[in-house]
Amino acid sequence: MPVLNLSGLHKRFGGLVAVNDVSFEVPRGSIIGLIGPNGAGKTTVFNLITGNYTPDQGDIFFNGKKINGLLPHKIVKLGIARTFQNIRLFQEMSALENVLAGRHGKMNVGILASMFHTSRHRREEQLALERAIKELAFVGLEEQYGNLARNLSYGNQRLLEIARAMAADPQLLILDEPAGGMNEQETQDLLGLIATIRNMGISILLIEHDMTLVMKICDYLVVLEYGAVIATGPPAEIKRNPLVIEAYLGSDDEDD
């Protein structure tokens, strides 16, 4: 069973059809790239999967269970974590606290235990701190744990978002332009990081404009144009697909 399965997704905003009959699946343990020109509806597809939008039509299955209509935090709890195209960290909080946010859904103590700092609360808090440091170390930000998120470099902020997502124990990680704004070296590092995550058994779905990165790392690509899937296949095949070439050449190259 694929980890994620989209079937016939539709989403309209007013008169605009943002997502038009999109279906594809993410096999377990694979890296799938979602590509396409700007305004093709890629981020909207992500927002549908993560529950930030609800589809007008169609279904989303995660591990065979229908998840459309669930609230985002429920979907995170089931095992889908994400990053954002325009970084959405808690800018005025420390790197450590940002990662703790991702761990939040795995903690259980309630309001009274929190207010009286019961021993259960302290134990759980310690485990969460340990785990948060582990995730920070994993993306190489361990030393920066006390710094405010807004004081991190752009590339490090993207890594911090990944650490926050990883702290939620995802089975599927959704990355929205993870290399956006990164330099050459950082992009190379990111490639290694993504490969490591996959080798831990976590499936990855990503949007990326850096075609070298996409071609190098993805097992399979899904190409969107005007909200519809125009091609799917392994990178080598997609590269030669005339429809894809036309979609890309026919559009300008600004950022979304």
Binding site: P72, A81, F84, H104
Partner: peptide, 8 residues
């Protein structure tokens, strides 16, 4: 971002 990090 809080909701998307898994916070109800």
């Amino acid at each position: 971002a809080a909701e998307s990090s898994g916070i109800n």
